[in-house]
Design a protein around this nucleic acid. Sequence first.
DNA 1: TATTATATCAAACAACATGTTCGAAATGTA
DNA 2: TACATTTCGAACATGTTGTTTGATATAATA
Lengths: 189, 189
Amino acid sequence: MKNKKVDRRILRTQGLIRKALIPLIVSKGYDAVTIQDVLDHANVGRSTFYAHFRDKDDLLLSGFDELMNELTAHVKNESLESQSKKKTVFKFSLPLLDHANQNRLLFKALLGNRGGVLVQKRAFEMVVELVKHELQADERSSKLSAIELEIKSHFYAGAFFSILKQWLEGRIKALPHELDLHFQNLCRI
Amino acid sequence: MKNKKVDRRILRTQGLIRKALIPLIVSKGYDAVTIQDVLDHANVGRSTFYAHFRDKDDLLLSGFDELMNELTAHVKNESLESQSKKKTVFKFSLPLLDHANQNRLLFKALLGNRGGVLVQKRAFEMVVELVKHELQADERSSKLSAIELEIKSHFYAGAFFSILKQWLEGRIKALPHELDLHFQNLCRI
DNA sequence: TATTATATCAAACAACATGTTCGAAATGTA
DNA sequence: TACATTTCGAACATGTTGTTTGATATAATA
């Protein structure tokens, strides 16, 4: 499937640009970050940037998709393991919190107050899908109507996302498994 | 307290500018709205704008504060009335949904996908306060630790806000009281 | 290694947005 | 009416965006 070897320069350049973005988001907030900033910190020419990315949002999302793949892989693996242990309500929670904890800086940059709307939206949609998926797998919820499923999944996804953000901002001090426990306890379906 | 009569021109101008903003947010999204757009649609000179507002965010928030005062007044009134009727978990929900329903376009513009991060944050903080307030008034939750209160309030606020947004986007078709019922049912504390 | 392909670069560019300043004109207030 | 204040519009410096150019550097390949 992936036959074509990519020119090493392309990988190098894209890497430089992507890596330059994160610290800038952390320090200035996504909206305030200018393409010029990225250029300066990545030491890359203006025209080179536009050879690879359409604009700032494109850059952000391109890196984000990568991250998402890692994350979902991690979450699904861990979820399988924890399947047998306890009968928690939502299995995605702990692995996701773990992963967020390990990449705290990145997650805080993307999901925190300084992150952009775009990423927030995409990330939240992912959580909604995770919740929805587990609800459908659950026998108790299997007889939900479409609208009830919609409401329920957004309810729990919103709740989780909200807690996650507060936690990343440092306003909730807890270890991943502690926060997970709190979340699961509040989710008595 | 409010002795000084405000120059009619000021009220007129600020009104024109504020009113011009909302439809622009609806059509382009807040981030894409330019001050020049506002100037054109409000038929107001550039220097006049800066005589009243520091920048775009300032304009947005100035209108928002107004809205919030109305809203909280409405919510608190209605909450008192519904106090006796049923023992719902959260009393703020129905009045807030009602108010949002009556000003649907405005709410959708501010809280929806096209709204800005700033307003979202402020609005969400308001919901958090409402939830926290009711939790503290509830005898069952009175013995919560600070951190538990923090988690719990963000849990339910996030859940509510999430549903509210989906509802405003039209992806959940329901009347205010129906959505409220769904929310209350999911909130079995 | 030599050749070929293509990625990068710097520089310049037009288009646009921002925020400030100015005096003249319009409009409210008393 | 006379005065005070607001508005206007035009110009301005500054900064960002996205495109184009031909020269240069570097990777892939034979």
